[in-house]
Amino acid sequence: MERVLITGAAGFIGSALTGALRAAGMPVIPVDDLSVTSWRPQPDGLQIRDVRTLSTDDLDQADTVIHLAAHKSVPHSFQQGPFEHNTAVDRHIVSTFTASRARRLLLASSCEVYGQQDGPLAEDRSLGPRSPYAVGKVATELLADVHRHLLDPGRQITTLRFFNTFGPYEGADAVVPAFLDAAADNSHLLIEGDGQQARDLTHIDDTLTMLTRVLDHPQAPPVLNVGSGEAISVLYLAEAIITLTGRGTIDRTAPRTNEISAFTADMTLYETQYGPVPRRDLLTALADTRTRRNAARPQAVSVPS
């Protein structure tokens, strides 16, 4: 059976993926330095270590390496630290994988690499990063392309461009949990700018389905979007959560630096390779996320049903 090493395994997507793969009987080696906190309990057997200490011997223990570890805050990336950290970690993983015997590397990137463009974003679109975080991910993708040509036949690197995955254990710095937490406290849902910026939202369970399909297939394209193919405005999201919970009010702050007006994944390539994109109904997914988040929320407040 395929053995998988996951970096960022205590994070939002990493911990969920670790649990899903283990539930399916797949051996997982989880690695995380715990520099980003998570609401989900740490996976059993977690190796608490800096990803940059992983060696070829470590990666030789796995058939597939899934690299999810990152500091993902776009605003914080304008500070020097997060940008340099991500770039160094990504470079280490790509070069160490190339020198190892592991067969496959799935490398997390982001829709942020596309920058400001109109319409659904296909994998062959030009890249136009507008933040240090996105610049770092573009650099990682280019580095992966260089190393892809150094691999022996049968080995592969696939870059996964994640759009906006959400779910109950996501950190409160992301838009969906921030809005849900504000509603739970009957407080202000803070919108940056006019709220017309649109985001492609994918429930964590749908993201896990897409990732397991990729793992189950022997080949994957060099670059692959992971999203729903549908986008909604931040204002609509806030209004939907207020309607769902019956709590909270909308307030506005200054627009984000270099804010992108819309991210919508073109999922044609995914559907060609793996079949229909799983799409949980957004309102149902928000209700499920609210219920499970309130149950897991640290120092949770009492919230009416």
Rank of each mutant, 00 (worst) to 15 (best):
E2M: 15
I6H: 01
T7I: 04
A9R: 04
A10H: 09
I13S: 02
T18D: 12
M26A: 13
P27S: 11
P27Y: 12
V28C: 05
V28S: 04
V31C: 05
D32Q: 09
L34Q: 08
V36Y: 09
V36I: 14
V36G: 09
D44H: 01
G45W: 07
L46G: 04
V51H: 02
V51R: 03
V51W: 02
S55P: 02
L59C: 04
Q61A: 08
V65D: 06
L68P: 06
A69L: 02
A70E: 14
Q80W: 15
N86Y: 00
N86C: 11
D90K: 06
I93D: 01
T96K: 06
F97G: 03
R103M: 02
R104Q: 06
L105E: 01
L106V: 02
L106G: 07
A108W: 11
S110H: 09
S110N: 00
D118T: 10
E123K: 00
D124W: 07
R125D: 05
R125A: 14
R125L: 09
G128S: 13
P129D: 03
R130N: 14
R130A: 13
P132M: 04
Y133C: 01
Y133T: 07
V138T: 01
E141D: 11
E141F: 04
L142A: 13
A144P: 00
H149E: 14
H149G: 12
G154R: 04
T159L: 03
F162E: 08
T165L: 05
T165N: 12
F166I: 05
F166H: 11
Y169P: 03
A172W: 04
D173G: 13
P177C: 10
A178G: 15
L180S: 05
A182E: 10
A183C: 11
A184M: 14
A184P: 00
D185S: 11
S187H: 13
S187E: 10
H188N: 13
I191M: 04
I191H: 07
G193T: 03
D194H: 01
G195H: 11
A198Q: 15
R199A: 06
L211Q: 03
R213W: 09
D216H: 13
H217K: 12
H217I: 01
P218I: 07
V226K: 02
G229F: 10
A231M: 05
V234Q: 09
V234L: 14
L237F: 03
E239H: 06
L244G: 10
L244H: 00
R252H: 15
P255I: 10
R256N: 09
R256H: 11
R256M: 05
S261L: 02
A262P: 09
A265M: 01
M267D: 00
T268V: 03
T268A: 13
L269N: 03
E271R: 14
E271Q: 15
P278W: 05
R280T: 15
L283D: 15
L283T: 14
L286H: 07
A287V: 05
N294W: 12
A300T: 13
S302T: 15
V303A: 01
S305Q: 14
